[in-house]
Amino acid sequence: MDLHTVVEVVSPAAVGQWRPGDAWLAGGTALFAEPQTDVTRLLDLVAAGWTPITVHGHGLEIAATCTVADLAGYAGAEHFTAFHELATACCRAFLASFKIWNVATVGGNLCAALPAGPMIALTAALDGECLIFGPDGERRLSVTRFVTGDGATALAAGELLRSITLPAAALTGRTAFRQGSLFAHGRSAVLLIGRRDGAGLVLTVTAATVRPFQLSFAEVPDAGELAAAVRATIPDDAYVDDVHGLPAWRRHLTARYAEEIRAELAG
């Protein structure tokens, strides 16, 4: 979609250049998807040339401008087995063409904050921490706190998402992935990821809910304990209600997939 109100593009852009009427531009797949009548200037982040994925001693840092294709094709850090398993599954959850994979970015998916965003699921499940740049400096926030609702994030005016760091401790070990949709090739209506964390279990719920929810257990719970924890953690009004699925159905699938993941990772 043409953004007919835009009169200037700043490339490359920096944090201090932001002013009312600006929008940060990375892949643009969300920005150009609907009218943006209040946007008069685009600040180009891709031209900044951030390295898509960087390996650190403490884990992986994924630039906000890292494309889905970059993520799916990344073959480094082979010992981070959980990352590679989940990255592949979450990239496929886009159900998008190679054209979208080559343009859409990890950061854009988080900032769009759509419940079905698979990059939200990936980074939340792997305990991702967002690095945020803004006029007042930088701050860090977990992915589960960064996405605050359907289409809403914790970003303040003038702030941008620079990168997401995944800690090494979360990038290995066994994982389990479940995705549900009303259609064989439809948007994710429920997406759950489980991860063994030592003797315990970490369960992340996305797509079914307006924001990501994460449940952590010191030891793998039994079926009853898990079901009770899911009910206590996710309020009924947090389940999404749209054409891709009713809240009751999403709640049912969430409980079913949670138990499947528990049983799979308990073995």
Score class of each variant (00 low, 15 high):
12 P>I: 06
72 A>Q: 11
100 I>R: 12
68 V>M: 14
83 F>K: 06
47 A>F: 06
100 I>D: 04
18 W>A: 03
8 E>T: 01
92 R>K: 12
48 A>Y: 03
46 V>T: 11
96 A>V: 07
29 T>Y: 06
93 A>G: 07
86 L>A: 07
81 T>Q: 05
22 D>P: 00
73 G>T: 09
53 I>K: 07
64 A>Q: 09
73 G>W: 11
85 E>H: 11
69 A>Q: 12
45 L>W: 04
16 G>T: 12
8 E>V: 00
44 D>N: 12
87 A>L: 00
88 T>Q: 10
48 A>E: 14
81 T>S: 13
39 V>K: 05
101 W>M: 12
19 R>H: 13
95 L>G: 09
19 R>C: 12
18 W>V: 01
42 L>Q: 05
50 W>Y: 09
93 A>L: 00
20 P>T: 12
14 A>N: 10
27 G>P: 01
58 H>A: 15
74 Y>R: 02
26 A>Y: 08
71 L>H: 02
87 A>H: 00
64 A>V: 09
8 E>R: 10
51 T>A: 14
76 G>K: 03
102 N>C: 08
39 V>Y: 06
85 E>F: 04
38 D>S: 13
64 A>M: 10
58 H>D: 15
70 D>V: 06
56 H>S: 12
83 F>C: 07
82 A>F: 05
68 V>P: 01
91 C>R: 08
81 T>K: 03
103 V>G: 01
36 Q>A: 08
63 A>I: 07
86 L>C: 05
64 A>H: 11
74 Y>T: 00
98 F>P: 02
39 V>F: 06
55 V>H: 09
11 S>C: 07
89 A>H: 15
13 A>E: 04
16 G>Q: 15
62 I>K: 02
67 T>P: 00
66 C>D: 03
81 T>L: 06
95 L>F: 14
47 A>P: 04
29 T>W: 08
104 A>K: 02
15 V>L: 06
39 V>S: 06
45 L>F: 07
90 C>Y: 15
12 P>S: 05
75 A>P: 00
79 H>S: 14
51 T>E: 15
79 H>K: 08
99 K>G: 07
14 A>D: 14
90 C>M: 15
100 I>P: 01
73 G>R: 10
90 C>I: 12
98 F>H: 12
66 C>W: 02
37 T>L: 14
42 L>K: 03
42 L>D: 01
99 K>L: 07
19 R>I: 07
97 S>V: 05
15 V>K: 09
100 I>V: 15
39 V>P: 02
55 V>K: 10
